[in-house]
Design a protein around this nucleic acid. Structure first.
Lengths: 306, 306
DNA sequence: TTGAAAGCGCTAACAC
DNA sequence: GTGTTAGCGCTTTCAA
């Protein structure tokens, strides 16, 4: 599958342009200390040879991979996708690429994934959530690069944090519902043992209910839409007979008729903030040792279902 | 940021376990030709030293990156996310990792991205769509690794193809609508110059209309939901006053009341098929030179809006 | 089953 | 502004 003979290397380009490989190397990283003339010759020689820069070799030599490793639970989730998009935007023009992995909401899988990602020598590693296996924590702590936990506010962070309290988000919604006069509240979702952030929101929700001595009835995440549609099918009036609130501020919740009351956690902004933090850390604008905790603030978006 | 002194290398592990680095290397890739006893010693030494395998060095030496490069237009799209998920599943246990990049529906950006990805020496490259800049086509054609175009059925493929005709998908929906007695059809979306697949669907749709001499009114993609909700707001009855059909078979379309007629293109299956193809190619189960075209078949899912 | 030697294709560090 | 030297940390290849 190799293009017939053998890929050209910098040495080939150097030879053709009558310079040393070092000069070729400089020309390719826009190092100012190459004369315009020389650079032109080099780039032309490279073009003629069909030379493609080999970053693996560059990475090994410079001991910089150019990667930021990122783990998210799933790619099929608009919230995490927004966060990754934020990171992508924030890292644009930094020369860093995102190496993305999916944990499938499973800490065992996360452990495996983190181990694998670290072998690629990322310059920073960003994980979703603050709960990990002991072995995973240890790997992260010993990685020797900045670690950022997101989408959570762990009490014992490994390194840096950009996120919010999921329990607090749950409480927030109870406050909202109670203020609207609802008194029999329930929670749909977040009961799988794997989505620990969903569980945290449920806990916060239930705890807030208990504080008030209220009953339980119905609230959810994306499933709010499913619940709403089911109510329509059954002729249950929303929000008159029952209120429904979601979580995540999906586009869908806004479009929906009636539009769905939800919590916006600023998923995209989390990504942006993470990127800023990582760049500050990597460029020495921030000391690696001062642990940064960026608390983002979930907000209730009051709409028509609650 | 380095763990104080210096990361341990294979040589350190070898030294501690009283073997050569070569034996350590073998132990780490579960090479059978290492005695169980020796391997145990090595793994223990590695554990004690906190050794982390450096795949960059391994990649350079073996000239295998372990990467499959993948470009998709956006991470915020359930369809492409499904495809990536399919690939992830299909490549699990193959030792290959996905290096994902986003083009933002922009062929210029795709060109830049492909250039960047190729520098990482992927073992195969998978791109979304069959339209690329000339320079991008050239890079792909000369990459020296399998190239797969997806989500399209280009007339002049670069390498392999796993996809479907977007124009055909457009026609399919016209057939469906006409069969249901609708005669004034329109198309919402696919008019940005960048989403060429959306445009193709529109073309197929319009071409099919012209074949029948019909008027134009309203059809869409995810926007079908938006259109539907707007109709509800205005008291327009769907599908009595107007029919609405979407594209992509999002969960939302099924949940929605009324549920939305749509086209399922088997996004997840595309990912699975791509992974199979790539593995066949890489393992020599298939000749790299026989161009494979896997045509997937979009299907209309008739529901309540049309 | 194990080891020695020779790189992989770049860049750091230092000359000039 | 450009070149030389010496690796980066692994694996390939060949021997034993």
């Amino acid at each position: 599958m190799q293009s017939s003979p053998k890929r050209p290397t910098m040495a080939d380009v150097a030879h053709r342009a009558n310079v040393s490989t070092m000069t070729v190397s400089r020309a390719f990283k826009r190092d100012a200390s190459v004369s315009a003339d020389t650079r032109d010759r080099i780039l032309q020689a490279a073009e003629e040879l069909g030379y493609v820069f080999d970053s693996i070799a560059a990475n090994l030599s410079s001991r910089r991979s150019g990667f930021v490793a990122v783990t998210i639970p799933s790619i099929n989730n608009a919230n995490f996708a927004d966060t990754v998009r934020g990171m992508t935007e924030g890292l644009r023009d930094s020369g860093l690429e995102i190496l993305l992995g999916f944990t499938d909401y499973n800490v065992q899988e996360e452990e495996r994934l983190v181990g694998q990602l670290l072998q690629r020598r990322p310059e920073a590693i960003i994980v979703t959530g603050g709960r990990h296996t002991p072995r995973c924590r240890k790997m992260l702590a010993n990685a020797g690069v900045p670690v950022v936990e997101t989408w959570d506010l762990p009490s014992d962070p490994i390194g840096h944090v950009v996120g919010f309290s999921n329990a607090e988000a749950g409480r927030l919604m109870v406050d909202h519902l109670v203020a609207r006069g609802y008194s029999r509240l329930g929670f749909i979702g977040g009961d799988t043992s794997r989505d620990t952030r969903g569980l945290d929101r449920r806990r916060g929700f239930v705890a807030a209910l208990q504080d008030r001595g209220l009953d339980v009835m119905c609230v959810s995440d994306l499933s709010a839409f499913g619940a709403l549609m089911e109510c329509l099918r059954r002729g249950i009036r929303v929000p008159d007979d029952v209120a429904i609130a979601g979580f995540g501020a999906y586009d869908l919740a806004e479009q929906s008729v009636p539009s769905i009351t939800t919590i916006d956690v600023g998923a995209h902004e989390i990504g942006i903030r993470v990127a800023e933090l990582v760049l500050d850390l990597l460029n020495g604008r921030r000391e690696p040792d001062d642990r940064v905790v960026v608390g983002t603030t979930p907000k209730v978006i009051a709409r028509h279902t609650a």
